[in-house]
């Protein structure tokens, strides 16, 4: 499998604080990739750097063979990187359906004919099981539907690589079981997925490979089995 995304020696500082130091990893086409680490280990910073919300202080990012290190976020989205937010950030003045029209009209501009935007949005909502709520306002959605909307909107950007930032944080086990199949289904349609998650059960089940961050450094990478048996990982999570 070819590399879809290459992170090469990425470094990020906030003032004197080293948030990421020399992080490298490779995500392959079609892969389900897990990114874990204790709180404050730099997971969110890393995906902010990948999605373009933050600039980097060193290193390069290569997506589909193209150097994207200096590209603004919206252009990365157009190339096929899309993320969901940990705390959902819907467009509050729009209906659920209209929320999906934004990425369809912008990120997927040119891929979807103008007349097909609404039907395409409806199609994605159906896939997510949100079609009954198409005309609702985000403020009226339940917690889990809000997470679904966040994922549905990311889907509407027609990504090659979906970065799911703690899409399941705060959900009940039953609700986690409702979100996971959606992510599996997306992956089966050929979308590469990076999952950032605190719920170990979910990441372990979902990911084919996992990278572990601690204090801004990558301390381990491998299959779920390899990672759980890694001594450094254990230390990072449980302390000395």
């Amino acid at each position: 499998m070819a590399a879809l995304l290459e992170v090469r020696g990425v470094t990020k500082r906030f003032g004197g604080f080293q948030a990421l130091s020399d992080v490298s990893l490779e995500v392959r086409e079609g892969e389900r990739f897990g990114l874990i680490g204790p709180n404050g280990s730099g997971k969110t910073t890393l995906i902010n750097c990948i999605s373009g919300a933050l600039g980097t202080d060193g290193g390069t990012l290569v997506f589909r063979g193209k150097d994207i290190t200096r590209l603004p976020a919206h252009q990365r989205t157009r190339l096929g990187i899309c993320r969901s937010f940990q705390i959902p950030r819907p467009f509050t003045s729009m209906t659920v359906l209209e929320n999906l029209c934004i990425p369809l009209e912008y990120a997927a501009h040119g891929q979807v004919p103008r007349s097909a935007v609404a039907s395409e949005a409806m199609e994605i909502l159906r896939l997510m099981g949100l079609d009954a709520k198409a005309q609702a306002r985000p403020a009226d959605l339940t917690g889990i539907d809000m997470r679904k909307l966040e994922l549905a909107r990311a889907m509407a950007a027609k990504p090659r690589l979906l970065i799911s930032d703690e899409a399941m944080a705060g959900l009940s086990p039953a609700e986690v079981d409702a979100i996971l199949p959606i992510l599996f289904a997306l992956n089966e349609r050929g979308i590469t997925i990076i999952m950032i998650e605190h719920i170990m059960r979910a990441v372990m089940r979902f990911s084919q490979r996992i990278a572990v961050l601690d204090a801004g450094e990558k301390i381990a990478e491998g299959t779920p089995e390899e990672v759980v048996s890694n001594k450094r990982v254990e230390k990072a999570y449980l302390g000395e």
Binding site: F91, I102, Y106
Partner: peptide, 12 residues
């Protein structure tokens, strides 16, 4: 509604 989210959805 949300500038960061807009940028992430491909809005320049």
């Amino acid at each position: 509604d949300n500038e960061e989210a807009a940028e992430c959805m491909g809005v320049p």
